[in-house]
Each structure stands twice: as structure tokens, then as C-alpha cells.
Design a protein around this nucleic acid. Structure first.
Lengths: 342, 342
DNA sequence: CTGAAAGCGCTTACAG
DNA sequence: CTGAAAGCGCTTACAG
């Protein structure tokens, strides 16, 4: 591509038009003190006449920081991550920062490319929902001064700031709730076991049952991506046998919705199902309008995003402060589905 | 702030370490042809040893374009806008572009500041969900070469590319559906009348009724932000009178959900309500799981975002092509709530 | 195949 | 209060 058609005026052009030096224009543009009001007026007039707007890219190059951050989530279209990102944006704006966003789609290489592309633009910090086993590629960036905060999951092999959720405690709370309502056969439908949160949550399930003196029945645990087929198979197994589960715990909102959708279908002829009690991890829109309304262990994605952003800005201020790992609580929201008797 | 602690190696450092000229490093980094393989290897070794990573900000300054775009939506936490943004991101990535995002919160000044901040970073293009009456502030940016595409709503006073939805046609389809099921008293619950889409949609309502030879009853129209109080008042009026509405059309998913929530409450004592039929504009998660499942006029936010991004990249390629205004169709999804008899 | 110089549009560090 | 020079880290345009 040859010289662009863009023909933006520069500080130099403004200076020429106003009959002053470049530096004086810079002073006026940046509201630096000590400019003669009459001179400033001349400069301002020239700025308006030419339609000058400072090139922040040039400014950035000279100053060494860009006042921008990058956010890499799993999927910006997912309400959990979009709400989280929006909260980061809000904090960033407070500091006068702009934010790049990107979705990794759970692909380690795509995440890496996004994060490094942001770093190549010299963002001052990154907020990352980590994917995959290896995050050492970020080490040089961090060493070079990029602040990094991991969110929702810890970085695999990097000692860095992180904002997590009390997954284990949250699930325990949900399972204990079902136990308190008399359930003893409780099925757990999680997600792919390599996802950090999925592992933590099934751990919470096991701990809750074991602590209460119950035996873990492996046939009541399903750890798979919530495809239609996987969910159907798991439900048939858990609800169709001679000693069926009377309650289910679903490990995230995608699973919850998939299960609800499956329960809404008539079961195969040879299977007889009773509607099980249900508690789901993650709140979701109109969970309260379903019948029965869905009892959930709610996370607070906006709070998570805010916490991550605040940690990021604190890290930018002081690269040497010790690494922080915050764990945010969950909240049981009782709505009906989790209070049905066995 | 003084000199930053960041101590990144530059091409100059690499050149010194490899014993070549700066330009040769540039050639290697950019995969330019015509470098002696042995020289290239020396340079690559130096790059690895120093952990060099090109500063894209500097590159950008010299080349005149940044390979980045800005997206300003109403609220990134809203599934409609986050899905739209995600689709824009996808197209951008295909072109090797990065994307800044921002939420205007329906504030004209905040939108303006975000858009101009993106332009100050010299993004090559912006996708904007416009708010407010005045978008002339973008005129100089567009003149200076920034591509701009408006989405969901047209720019108030600027002749620019836009991707809209056939709001009028969509609502007409919904109202005609209710008419075909025998309804004659159909209430319309919209949104604040200064929102473009709200205006278009109520127009569709009027047109559908008029075309079918029916009279418009103003008491069956409510144009207000869907606060709890406003929705309740509108429902009491529309459903509580001597000649109540037998069906409702809701103008967007926020309204739909607010109405459903209100209908789930027991009505005030002196009001007796029948459950009205319902068709809503916008699809939403688990609309199919409610009882009755909710019939909607669905938009396709991913398609809208994709169309906007594609238009943007075409505009970047040719600043002089004529202004395009695309209007995307809607789809009626029949689920039950819209097929209930009067 | 390789390199020295100029310049992108600003800010920094000084000098007057 | 104002300005001339250098430099941020690259690419462009040339020269050898």
C-alpha cells in the first residue's frame, strides 16, 4: 500500500498555521501551564481551523505506555464473559484506559496469539482467562513490564495474580442443600475434565458427600462437554436405573440448560423418569421464570471482572508487590428446583 | 512518571548483538525476501537471545495504519451486543486486525468520547451503535480516512454505511401472526420512544393493524423504558379494563422478560387477568423452556455483526464506493405463547 | 544481499 | 513564556 489518502494535520501544521513553535502547540493540546492566553487562543483557533486531533499512537511511542489493556476471554458472546469484560472496561475507563478484547474459543494457540498481539501493541496490562497447559510465553512480557492478571482459572505454570471463584465451596453448599432436603442419590453433570473449574467443582461434589459420610457412586458422575448426546446418555444412566438419582447438580449454566432441555423431552419408552431436584452452578437469565424456578449457586461475573481489573491496575502501579490470588464467594439462590423432595 | 522499568530490546539492540545493520533485522522480522540465510540465522539467534518482540506501535506510526478497529455498542454485557461484537471480532481476526471495544450505556457523550478516543489511537475503522442526535463529530474522522459503519440504528445526521434490521417488517409479521390466530385486541409494549428501533417497531405495529383494517387504540400502546412500575401500569391498563387485550407484542427482549416476570406475579386484587397470548421481538436464552414457550421475532446478532464488519473492511479498501445501507431480515419462531386463542 | 539516512508525530530535556 | 534539538522504535526510499 502506498502513502495513505489520509491527510491529517499534525502539530507541525498547527504550529505553522498559528505562527508558533511545535512545542507550544504541544503545551496547549496537553493543557500544560505557562502559556500566554493570547498565544493559546491563536493555537486553539488553528486547531479548530485545521481539525487537528492528536495522534495518540505517536504520543504513546514517546511516553512508553499506551494507556490500554487487553482482555482475552473464552467467548465474548457468553454472558458470563461479556459481563466480566464489561466490568473490566468500566474500571479501565475510570483510569482513562482503552481496552482490546479477544475470544480464545478455548484454543491455547489462539489465546497465545491474541495475548502476544496485545503485548506487541504494548498494552500496559492483560486480563486473561487462561487456556491450556503452558503460559510461560508470557514470562518475557511480564518481565518487560506488562501487568498480567488471570481470571476464572489460575495460570498453569506461572506465578501471577489471579481472581478465582470458590468453586469447591460453592458446590459443597449446593450439595449440602440437597442433602438437607433429604436427597441421598445425587447425580453430578460436569464439563470436560481438563477445564480447571470443572475439576474443582467435581471435587466439591466429592468432598461434600464424603464429609457427610456418604459413598461416591461413580455412575452418578458425568464429566463431558455438554453435548446433547452426552447429556442424554448421562441422564438415562442416572435417572433410569433401579436406584435412580433423585437430585442433580449441574456444573455450569450450559450444562444446566442442556439438562433442562433434555428433561423437557419425553423420555425414551423403556425409561421412566421422575423429575429430579436440581441445583445448578451459575445463574442465568430467566432462571426464575422456569417451572420449577431453578435454584442456583451464583457467581458474580461483574464482581470478578472488577476485582481482576483493580488487581491489574494495582500491579501496574507496583510491579514488585507480592503475587495476589483472590477467591470470590458464591451465593445460593433458592428458587424451587433445589427444594423438591426425593 | 519517569522512565519506565520496562527494558525491552529494540531492533537496534538486536542489530548490535548480531553484528548487522538495523535494516537487516527489520528484513528478518518481517520475512522480507533477499536475506542471506546465514545472516538471517544470526539475526534470529540474537532475537531469541534477547527476547526481542517488535513494537507494533512504532511500526504503526511509520506505516500509517494500525490494523485495529473500534467497536462501540450500547452495553457489552447485553447478549445481543456481545454476540454482535464477537462476530465483528471474528471477521477482524481474519484480516489480522485487533479490536477495541466500548459500551456507551446509551449516553451520547460517552459514545462520542469512546469513538474519538479510538480515532485518536488511529484505528482504521469503527463500528458504532449510534446514540443521540448528532454524529457530525465523526465527519472529520471519516474525511481523514477512518471507515465507519453504523449498526442496529442509522446515524442521525451522517450519510454513512449502516446495517439495520427490518424492524417494521418483523413486527408486522408478529402482529399478523396474532391476527391470524383470532386476536383483535393486541397490546404493544415498546421502549423509550427516542430509541430508533423502538420507533420503528411501534410503526410496524400500527401498519399491521391499519393494513388489516383495524383501528389503533392508543390505550393499547405503551412506549416507556421497561421499568417494573411502567410495565405493571401498562399491563394493568391493557389487561384490566372492560375490553382487555387478548394478546401482547413486546418490543424487545428486556420488555419481554419484564412482562413475563410481571405476569408470573399474582395480579392486584381488583384486577382480573387472563394470560394473554404473547409474541416478543428478540429471541433470548431458554425462551423455549418457559411455559408456554415464547414465540418470538428473532434477529440474528451474529449475522448483523458479521455484515457490519464485512462492510467496514470493504469501506477500508475503497473510501469512495457509494454508501450502503443493508437491512437484515427477521425470523418468526413459533413456540406456543403466540398461538394461544383469544 | 546489506546498510546509512530520513521521517512517522509526538514528548522529553534543555536553553533562553 | 517560548522554542530548537534529540529521540521513542520502527519503515521507507535509496544507494551501494
Amino acid at each position: 500500500m502506498s502513502k495513505l489518502a489520509t491527510n491529517r494535520p499534525t502539530m507541525n501544521d498547527v504550529a505553522a498555521a498559528a505562527g508558533v513553535a511545535l512545542k507550544t502547540v504541544s503545551r496547549v493540546v496537553n493543557d500544560e501551564p505557562g502559556v500566554n492566553p493570547a498565544t493559546a487562543d491563536k493555537v486553539k483557533a488553528a486547531i479548530d481551523a485545521l481539525g487537528f486531533r492528536r495522534n495518540d499512537g505517536a504520543r504513546t511511542l514517546r511516553r512508553g505506555h499506551t494507556a490500554s489493556i487487553g482482555v482475552v476471554v473464552r467467548d465474548l458472546a457468553d454472558p458470563f464473559y461479556s459481563t466480566l469484560t464489561r466490568a473490566v472496561e468500566e474500571v479501565a475507563l475510570t483510569h482513562g484506559f482503552l481496552v482490546f478484547t479477544g475470544s480464545s474459543d478455548e484454543s491455547p494457540s489462539r489465546q497465545r496469539e491474541l495475548a502476544l498481539a496485545f503485548c506487541a501493541r504494548r498494552v500496559d496490562g492483560v486480563v486473561i482467562v487462561p487456556v491450556g497447559e503452558d503460559h510461560l510465553y508470557l514470562q518475557p512480557e511480564i518481565a518487560a513490564g506488562v501487568a498480567a492478571v488471570f481470571v476464572d482459572r489460575p495460570a498453569a505454570n506461572l506465578d501471577a495474580d489471579a481472581v478465582l471463584v470458590d468453586n469447591v465451596g460453592g458446590v459443597r453448599k449446593g450439595i449440602e442443600h440437597l442433602l438437607a432436603h433429604g436427597h441421598r442419590r445425587i447425580g453430578f453433570l460436569g464439563d470436560a475434565p481438563d477445564i480447571f473449574t470443572a475439576g474443582e467443582r467435581v471435587r466439591g461434589y466429592r468432598e461434600a458427600l464424603t464429609s457427610a459420610g456418604h459413598i461416591i457412586d461413580p455412575s452418578l458422575i458425568s464429566m463431558a462437554s455438554p453435548t446433547r448426546a452426552a447429556v442424554r446418555a448421562a441422564l438415562d444412566r442416572m435417572l433410569g436405573g433401579p436406584s435412580p438419582a433423585t437430585a442433580l447438580f449441574t456444573g455450569n449454566s450450559r450444562v444446566t440448560v442442556a439438562v433442562l432441555r433434555e428433561l423437557a423431552e419425553p423420555p425414551p419408552e423403556h425409561v421412566k423418569r421422575r423429575r429430579p431436584a436440581l441445583v445448578g452452578f451459575d445463574d442465568f437469565e430467566v432462571a426464575d421464570l422456569l417451572s420449577p424456578a431453578v435454584t442456583v449457586i451464583a457467581q458474580d461475573p461483574a464482581r470478578i471482572g472488577r476485582a481482576a481489573a483493580e488487581l491489574l491496575f494495582r500491579r501496574m502501579e507496583n510491579k514488585n508487590r507480592e503475587v495476589v490470588r483472590r477467591e470470590l464467594p458464591t451465593r445460593l439462590i433458592v428458587r424451587g428446583s433445589g427444594e423438591m423432595p426425593p
